[in-house]
Simulated scan of single mutants.
Amino acid sequence: MIEARHLRVLRAVSTTGSFSAAARELGCTQPAVSQQMKALESSAGTPLLIRTGREMRLTQAGEALVRHASGILAGLTAAEEEIAAIAGLRAGRVRLVSFPSGSSTLVPGALAALRAAHPGTQVSLVEAEPPRSVEMLRDGDCDIALAFRYGTAGGEWDDLVVRPLLKDRLIGLVPEGHRLAGADAVDIGELADEPWIAGCPRCRRQLVEVCEESGFTPRIDFATDDYPAVIGLVGAGLGVAVLPRLALESVRPKGARTVTVEPAVEREIVALTLPDLARVPAVAATLDQLSRAAAR
């Protein structure tokens, strides 16, 4: 196997014309140069140098190897510098996938802090709800997935690195003129006869489960993944809804009032990555900033 250190010795011998001169240039001993040249010729399987008096002359194979050595060594140097930049967070790329309410609340502060601390690190962002975002992570289409779950489904993410960020409580949303608009807290059973506006599929399933545990099945008149649309429909008096607190942080509920719903239902917000990716400096730094953003 041809090693980079052997190529450096060959190039020095070719440039200086002798083992002793090459040794002086490289800062090593002449026997060390001779030993490395023997190892290189053994790996190449053919002589690379011919001694002519006090000087060394390259064979045809030696000339070919020297021609390629410069490009190989230059490529290795560039690779070493790039890797050092990535390891030192002077460069790097992170592909982030987030659900919409996370994109509008947690992600902006985290990415702004990351850019301030490590301006050479580039982050791309696309939106996807779990479980699609988790599938993208496992398929290699992203480096970090911002996701959520209700309860703790056993084994769901056992193959991933899970960074817990926060617990996000569901908040009730009713029209301004609703009979419960001024209530401090509302038992979800008091909304049994109301028309409902439901959110994303995972949130929809959770809504049905919570309502059934309280003794009724919600009549879902409208379903949309767009939280502003949910708020708009409630504000227009077309039904009631429960939304995560994060979803309400970035949208002004015009025409609607928020109420605390009992029993309390929370979703767990997490950042997910693969075990190998968790050791990549840019990915680790992004996870840290997401944790700090969630704590604010």
Rank of each mutant, 00 (worst) to 15 (best):
A69P: 06
V251F: 10
V174P: 05
A32P: 00
V261F: 03
A236F: 04
V270K: 02
G172F: 00
G140K: 10
I171R: 13
R149F: 04
D226L: 11
A22N: 08
R219I: 08
E212C: 05
V13C: 06
G120Q: 10
R93L: 12
A85Y: 01
E129K: 04
L73E: 11
S70A: 13
F19A: 10
E249K: 13
P31C: 14
P201H: 07
R115W: 01
D187M: 06
G75I: 02
A44T: 01
L243Q: 07
R292I: 02
T29D: 10
C142S: 07
V161L: 07
T105E: 02
T59R: 01
E262V: 12
R296W: 01
T152D: 14
D168T: 12
E129T: 04
L246C: 02
A181R: 07
V162E: 08
E127H: 14
R279G: 09
S70R: 14
P119T: 12
R90L: 07
I269F: 01
T105W: 07
G235E: 02
E63R: 15
V230W: 03
G120V: 13
A21G: 09
E25L: 14
A87E: 15
I86H: 09
I171Y: 00
D168P: 05
E213N: 11
R11S: 14
G177H: 09
G154C: 03
E55G: 12
E212D: 02
A74G: 07
P244F: 02
S124N: 08
R279P: 00
G120K: 11
D276F: 01
P244V: 01
R54L: 10
R257A: 11
G17Q: 06
P253G: 05
Q206R: 11
A32C: 10
L40W: 03
R54D: 07
E3I: 08
L173F: 03
W196C: 03
L65K: 01
V94G: 09
M136C: 08
T46S: 11
D276S: 12
R132N: 05
E41G: 08
L96M: 07
R202D: 11
L125E: 10
L7H: 09
T16I: 10
A282D: 09
G45F: 05
L111I: 11
E135I: 11
V210S: 10
A116V: 04
H6M: 06
D288Q: 13
A271R: 03
S98D: 00
R90F: 00
R132H: 11
R57S: 12
Q289S: 02
I144D: 08
D187E: 14
Q35A: 15
Q35E: 11
L146D: 06
V234A: 00
T46Q: 13
L287T: 04
S291G: 15
I269S: 05
R8S: 14
R67E: 12
A181F: 10
A22M: 08
F99C: 04
G189E: 11
R279T: 15
E129G: 02
V123R: 11
V230K: 01
T286Q: 08
A284L: 05
E249S: 15
T52E: 15
R205E: 15
P164W: 09
V9P: 00
E127W: 02
Q30V: 09
S20E: 14
A112Q: 14
D168E: 02
V126P: 01
P47H: 05
F222T: 06
A21K: 13
V123G: 05
G102I: 08
L111G: 09
